[in-house]
Design a protein around this nucleic acid. Structure first.
Lengths: 203, 203
DNA sequence: CTACAATCGGAGTCTCCACTTCGGTTACAG
DNA sequence: CTGTAACCGAAGTGGAGACTCCGATTGTAG
């Protein structure tokens, strides 16, 4: 049992029920950091022991903070989703909407090429059933990005968000599986972008 | 030891060293059939026991015929690659080269949507290091298909085979991960195809 | 400083799965 | 029909990994 039950509503409002001891906070942060790196490199199948070792703690400590490997993974995915959603919103807010969209697409693929967590996250975002808040936020940010790019005439008006997500997931996964050289990535993206742009600007 | 060592060159020339007993042949065929189905449905991580059960034999029998799970998987992948390569060649031989290419692309994605083995195979085919004969044959068939489609003016001349493979793998993997409705698949393919076609025909 | 409760850590448990072993069974030659 | 080599199959082995337990340790309130 990670937290005792002396206080009601274990973690509803946002913070820990009772401030963690200083060393516990430190360890929790180390674990999260290590897990993010390991999951990014090896995917969800990475062993908990490897994470514990990289964090410099015992395996028992990991399971004290996160009762399940899956709960740890979920925490990481949550963080990644929040960061991606923020980046996306920032991109939508600044400058030319036309380039914002294509920059987003390119950047995401670049990130995915080295972080399996990003790919897995996008795969979740592609499934309409998902309810997790940060994933939804990411989807909404993408919707805005696509919408404004369409209004600016940079993306065909008949393209819908699901197709964009599908293409994004596809290119990300392909770039992860086959270790792409940067040039192949650029050439492939060029083809996809050409398909997304209105016919007049497709050449 | 699957075969005794009385005869030289265990399996160099192509057939079994000594004809298998009738029941052994029957079981071998059942195992291959079951493995193809199970691997297609659950991917390479499916357990050997499940395959044995589906084939109606004991697990020992599976390991007699295929000393390793990986060797069984390799046999299946080999078969899938041969079939795909044949289909591709047949498509290249018949009719209009323009539609042949796009038909190939569409069909492959449709297959991949329900068979994980196809996706894994394509991922292998996308890595230039691969040396396995049937995979190479598949790649060559695709090269022919792309080349003739380009000569017919149906595909941009500056597109290269690696990009096509990358796109194919990407769309296949995306369609496997997110369970696509047929319409989403069609719309996504339309975007990719539009990017592959010359600008004049892109609209 | 001291007491004690929170925390640590790693040995131990449990489950799953690839692979092996070997006594029982069966196809097939003679 | 009969002997036997080939074959079958299920219990057994070993290892990996998720998760637990509990004595040792340590932060911190008073």
């Amino acid at each position: 049992m990670p937290n005792d039950q002396r206080v009601p509503e274990p973690d509803a409002s946002g913070g820990p029920v009772r401030a963690l001891r200083a060393d516990a906070q430190r360890n929790r942060a180390r674990i999260l950091e290590a897990a993010e790196a390991v999951f990014a490199a090896k995917g969800p199948s990475a062993s908990t022991e490897e994470i514990a070792q990289k964090a410099g703690v015992g395996i028992g400590t990991v399971f004290r903070h996160f009762p399940t490997k899956e709960s740890l993974l979920k925490a990481i995915m949550h963080a990644v989703a929040v960061r991606l959603a923020e980046e996306t919103r920032a991109l939508a807010a600044e400058g030319d909407p036309a380039t914002a969209f294509f920059t987003f697409f390119t950047r995401t693929v670049e990130q995915a090429a080295e972080k399996k967590t990003v790919v897995d996250l996008l795969a979740q975002a592609g499934i309409p059933v998902t309810v997790a808040k940060p994933v939804l936020a990411l989807r909404e940010a993408v919707e805005v990005l696509v919408g404004t790019a369409q209004q600016a005439g940079a993306v065909r008006p008949d393209v819908r968000v699901p197709e964009v997500m599908a293409l994004l997931i596809g290119v990300c996964q392909a770039s992860l599986h086959t270790r792409w050289e940067p040039e192949l990535r650029a050439r492939t993206l060029a083809i996809v972008f050409s398909g997304l742009r209105p016919a007049a600007a497709a050449g």
